[in-house]
Amino acid sequence: MRITGSTGFVLKPSAWLNTSVVMDAVNKPRNITYKGLTDLVTETDKMSEAAILEVVKKNFEDHLILGEEGGVIGEVASDYLWCIDPLDGTTNFAHGYPSFAVSVGVLYQGKPTAATVVEFVGGPMCWNTRIFTATAGGGAFCNGQRIHVSATNEVERSLLVTGFGYEHDEAWATNIELFKEFTDVSRGVRRLGAAAVDMCHVALGIVEAYWEYRLKPWDMAAGVLMVEEAGGTVSLMDGGKFSVFDRSVLVSNGVLHAKLLERIGPATEELKSKGIDFSLWYKPEDYRTDL
């Protein structure tokens, strides 16, 4: 793991994550607590984040870190921000249901520059991993092989993915309607429950698009870079320029993006007209960006 330039890293997953932290736990009983009514956290979430933090702080002590469990740690004046989701898809993990992952994305002045997502695939008694990596300008890879988004250019021939957060508000209800509408006109809409995995599947070309409201930086920082480096397109759900500090995302294979926005965009604008704000949910104070 080393810095290769002002905007890039080389990240070797084995250098920052001992995957045995999660792998050792997948077939064992879970110690589950709650951050909200249905928002789970396990001891594995905390142990996974601790393992990542130990390596990042040792190698990049002057960098800023934003972890789902631990919050902001480190040098706020840094150009670099590590966005760490130690266990994306905790509810799936707690039930032994694929899909879930460990997701790490590095921002340089607010822009994704390096990413790794370790997806846990299979199921009870047959777990394995699939490792996605990407660097800005360097392409996206799965288990060392370069990957590309699909070439499907019709919604009717597409498999789509979305997600639903813990806030059952108007945005949640609007996305239920989008789910219904796209289910009617596509080959299907899936709800897997792990944003980083969903975006990696778009990058891998096995689904054509993914969208969701109410995400946070650690949900998106790695996945959006995977999609971009695999040749896809990333935007806000109103079609605007994407930032990991906003709270909506649409990623696609690119050729379908405008067609999807024909319905997703107006639905999002209607929510905004009601005063629902999806912009700048959180940015660490004094963290420098050129956004």
Score class of each variant (00 low, 15 high):
1 M>N: 11
4 T>I: 15
11 L>Q: 02
23 M>Y: 04
26 V>H: 01
34 Y>A: 06
36 G>D: 14
38 T>A: 11
44 T>H: 04
48 S>L: 03
56 V>C: 03
56 V>I: 15
57 K>R: 14
58 K>Q: 14
60 F>R: 02
69 E>S: 05
78 S>K: 07
82 W>N: 09
82 W>Y: 05
83 C>H: 02
85 D>K: 01
89 G>S: 05
93 F>E: 10
101 A>N: 06
104 V>F: 01
118 V>N: 04
122 G>T: 12
125 M>A: 13
125 M>W: 07
126 C>H: 12
134 A>P: 02
136 A>G: 10
143 N>A: 10
144 G>C: 08
147 I>L: 07
148 H>M: 11
154 E>H: 13
156 E>F: 03
157 R>K: 14
158 S>L: 10
160 L>D: 09
161 V>E: 07
163 G>S: 06
176 I>K: 14
178 L>E: 14
179 F>K: 09
184 D>Y: 10
186 S>R: 08
191 R>D: 11
191 R>N: 09
193 G>W: 00
199 M>I: 01
206 I>E: 10
207 V>Y: 08
207 V>M: 04
213 Y>T: 10
219 D>K: 00
221 A>S: 12
224 V>Q: 06
224 V>P: 01
225 L>W: 00
227 V>Q: 01
231 G>T: 07
232 G>F: 00
240 G>V: 10
243 S>E: 09
255 V>E: 09
267 A>T: 15
271 L>M: 15
272 K>M: 15
275 G>W: 05
277 D>C: 13
284 P>N: 09
290 D>C: 05
